[in-house]
Measured scan of single mutants.
Amino acid sequence: MFYPNSPQTSPQLTQIPYGQQYAMMQRQIQQPYHPFATTEPQARLYPYHYQGPIQQEQGGFITQQSTAASPQYVQMRVTPVDQSIMSGYPNQTANGSSSSSFNYNIHPQQQQQQQQQQQQLRHHAMPVGSVPLQDDRYRKQLIVNYLAPDVTSTDLHELFSRFGELDGARIIYDKQTNMSKGYGFVYFCHAEDAKEAVERMSGYEFHGKWLKVGYSTNPLNIVPSNSSPYVHAGSRGAAG
């Protein structure tokens, strides 16, 4: 039997160049792979992502010199942007860049009308829970959420009447099932009393439920100042 490094198959040491006398086997001759043993700084910083320098080929596509990437890492192929796409944008300079302001050559009167329309939209648009300043009635009506099913309009009136005089209180019921929808409205005579009720009743436990109280901004629920107070009856038909 002959071994790869046996004296019968191995040459004389004098015939082997210096430095390879003890590297006779194939696994010894093959050098191990060192990912950080390279002179390129990109490979030292990113050993798993770097795959060699990027070269520009004919046709405008950018390719990489090395083989496919590892399945664990996804390499994105980048193509140059066609400058003709950006030619339609206004205020574009000769080098292809555009300024931040756009001039669509709008007539001054049209621009003024658009600004007025935007101001009107901001004036009428009102986020949930906010209180408008032009109508004091919005500051007097509250919406009470997360009410228990057994709470009546009379219970709601008695709960909030300790903060001040009320114009009314009612629970909203479903017309088909005649069941409470879980929320109601309270109408105060003074805005200061309503503000105190919002601050003190939010998070209050009532009939096993934690109440959420806020201003009601729905104009359909506003009680006119010259109208008669609501009837605080315990029956659902009268309260709904």
Score class of each variant (00 low, 15 high):
Q55T: 10
Q15V: 14
N105Y: 15
V144A: 00
Y173P: 01
E158I: 12
D155G: 09
A125V: 14
C189D: 01
P80C: 14
S202W: 03
A94R: 04
A94G: 05
R162Q: 13
L156Y: 10
E165F: 15
Q114Y: 15
A94Q: 10
D82F: 15
G19E: 10
T67S: 05
P108K: 02
Y183W: 00
G184N: 04
F102R: 04
Q117T: 07
V128N: 04
G240V: 12
G129H: 07
S225K: 10
Q134F: 14
Y138E: 02
Q109M: 14
N5A: 09
A239S: 04
G208D: 03
T39K: 01
D193P: 10
A37Q: 14
S97Y: 15
P108C: 07
G96C: 10
S98R: 11
V231R: 10
H207E: 01
R77I: 15
P47Q: 14
M25P: 04
F185I: 00
N145T: 01
K140L: 01
G96Q: 10
T14Q: 13
A238N: 11
Q31W: 15
F36Y: 04
N105H: 08
T152N: 04
K209Y: 00
Q117W: 15
S180T: 13
Q83M: 15
G214T: 04
A169P: 03
G60D: 07
Q141I: 00
F102V: 04
A238S: 15
G208K: 02
Q141G: 01
R139K: 12
M179V: 10
T39S: 06
S161R: 12
D167N: 03
Q8L: 13
I29S: 06
V198L: 06
Q92F: 15
E158N: 11
Q20E: 02
V74T: 08
D174P: 03
S100F: 14
T9M: 14
R44E: 08
V223H: 05
F206L: 07
Q26G: 10
M201E: 01
T177I: 09
F36T: 09
E165Y: 15
A69W: 14
S235H: 02
Q112L: 13
Y22V: 07
T38H: 03
E57T: 11
K140P: 01
Y104K: 03
D136L: 08
K212P: 13
E40G: 08
Q75N: 05
Q26F: 15
S161M: 03
I172S: 00
Y187T: 00
M24C: 04
I172M: 02
S225M: 13
A43I: 15
G168Q: 03
E196V: 08
Y33I: 12
T14M: 14
Q141N: 00
T79C: 14
A23Y: 12
G52K: 04
Q30P: 09
S10F: 13
L211A: 01
H157S: 05
Y48D: 05
F163S: 03
I106W: 11
N103F: 15
S70R: 05
G237T: 03
I171T: 02
Q112F: 13
S98Y: 15
S84A: 08
I62G: 07
I222N: 04
V213R: 00
Q111L: 12
Q15L: 15
P11H: 08
Q75W: 15
Q141F: 00
Q65E: 03
Y146L: 00
Q111P: 08
Q112S: 09
G164T: 01
G237Q: 14
L142W: 05
F188M: 01
K209C: 00
F185L: 00
P35N: 04
V151I: 02
Q20F: 14
S227R: 10
P132M: 04
S66N: 08
P108L: 12
T93I: 10
G60Q: 07
H157F: 08
V198N: 03
Q141P: 00
Q28T: 09
K181P: 13
P80T: 08
